[in-house]
Design a protein around this nucleic acid. Structure first.
Ligand SMILES: [Mn+2]
Ligand SMILES: [Mn+2]
Ligand SMILES: [Mn+2]
Ligand SMILES: [Mn+2]
Lengths: 221, 221
DNA sequence: AAAAATATTTAGGTAAATCTAAAAAAAATA
DNA sequence: TATTTTTTTTAGATTTACCTAAATATTTTT
């Protein structure tokens, strides 16, 4: 019922590599964890003995249902702390992960559920990744800022970070709102502005600042 | 510059036993840490090698100046987290310590200084123990709730937890304010009410609820 | 289907933090 | 002061999480 920091890091990495569907390989996990394949094999045996892993030697491995539950618990803690650091302590987007990597291993259930409540049950961490609930269920779907969405792939607008009126002004002017489907036609490296095309209007350009404030996701998800 | 959880727990316990003044004994520290004397001796050698400890075998030991600095850093983290748990997450008085025991080992300086700022630079943890500042300096002095102050020992009122007007009403009525010196004459086990005596007034009784809301300290400190 | 290349596991070791049992030093007592 | 008791240290194991080097299994290439 209680796992070491090291065990938790292995479980989390396995989940991040393949969820609980396909098989993961020893070398792959060793690379992910910056450790050696022999060390991975050692840990695989231990996690299998604890029934967190489905594993036969030389055959690859994946999380058991129990292992997946544990993984989602760790991810819940990680992402709640990232949200806390970002929203309450004003950490920037790229500083939160490292600290959350440590905080996630403090396992008090009460701590995490109270933190969740205190934060207002946030749906997404600062990188747009969904936060699992108490039961480990993920309701939302990963979202990405428009400035990082790949070219020529249909996206659906799912949120806006900065909701001050001058930001919403721009969106209104360009007829963008939650649910709008669009494609990024071109990204200009000079100023990182992007050319956007929606269904019923000619293509237009928005600045990087604006593109960074718009969350998008795969349509329909 | 970076110490393991185990090393940190040893350092903190040494500080709690004797500050950095008198010598601590091996058995004493083993009892405090619920470990064996042999394990303590092993760790003493390691901490001495790291110059955190002044120690000659069979002679007892105490923290070096560097060791004291490290101890105060850990205590700062511990007490700030206790304050956070109590004030922000609504943990009760007696639940905070156990969780803080884990959180204290997350050592990001930025995390702790931002947390301190976010909390409004609190002076005391939920048990009345003073919180060291960024430099490890302790400005305040330990305070205790009046309901736990020993009988017949002079106390000075240093604060009030619940500051709603009906509470302040009582204090005004009994002529108690910050700085008032008083003694607890008797504690009635039936309802934990306490008989109080101040300088220029006859003794009077206050309820446990009120006594729990009044912080006191050694006069003059 | 061999041979070669690659991936994985096993064998054997190390460092940290713990333990028990035995030895040695210090303190208390007779 | 000699003996006994208590405290502390040393010696030698154990567990966890790593490692390197060698062995073995699997996959790819010829
Ligand atoms: Mn992260
Ligand atoms: Mn981690
Ligand atoms: Mn505490
Ligand atoms: Mn601790």
């Amino acid at each position: 019922m209680n796992y070491s920091t090291s065990e938790e890091n292995y479980i989390k990495s396995i989940y991040h590599l393949r969820g609980d569907h396909q098989l993961v390989t020893t070398n792959e996990l060793a690379a992910e964890l910056k450790t050696r394949p022999a060390s991975v094999t050692d840990m695989l045996k231990k996690l299998k003995a604890k029934k967190l892993l489905i594993y036969e030697r030389y055959q690859g491995f994946k999380l058991s249902p129990e292992g997946k539950k544990v993984a989602l618990g760790i991810i819940r803690r990680h992402r709640l702390w990232e949200y806390f650091l970002s929203v309450k302590l004003q950490f920037s987007w790229d500083e939160v992960h490292e600290v959350a990597e440590e905080l996630e291993h403090v396992t008090s259930k009460k701590l995490i559920d109270k933190l969740d409540e205190y934060l207002g049950f946030p749906q997404y961490d600062p990188h747009g990744d969904p936060i699992p609930d108490q039961q480990g269920k993920i309701h939302a779907v990963k979202q990405v800022v428009l400035s990082e969405w790949p070219l020529m792939e249909l996206a659906e607008v799912s949120g806006v970070t900065d909701q001050r009126s001058d930001m919403l002004d721009i969106l209104k002017h360009q007829n963008i709102s939650i649910g709008t489907k669009l494609e990024v036609k071109k990204r200009f490296s000079f100023d990182n502005s992007v050319e956007i095309k929606t269904k019923n209007s000619p293509a237009f350009i928005i600045s990087e600042q604006v593109a960074k404030n718009i969350w998008v996701k795969k349509p329909g998800t």
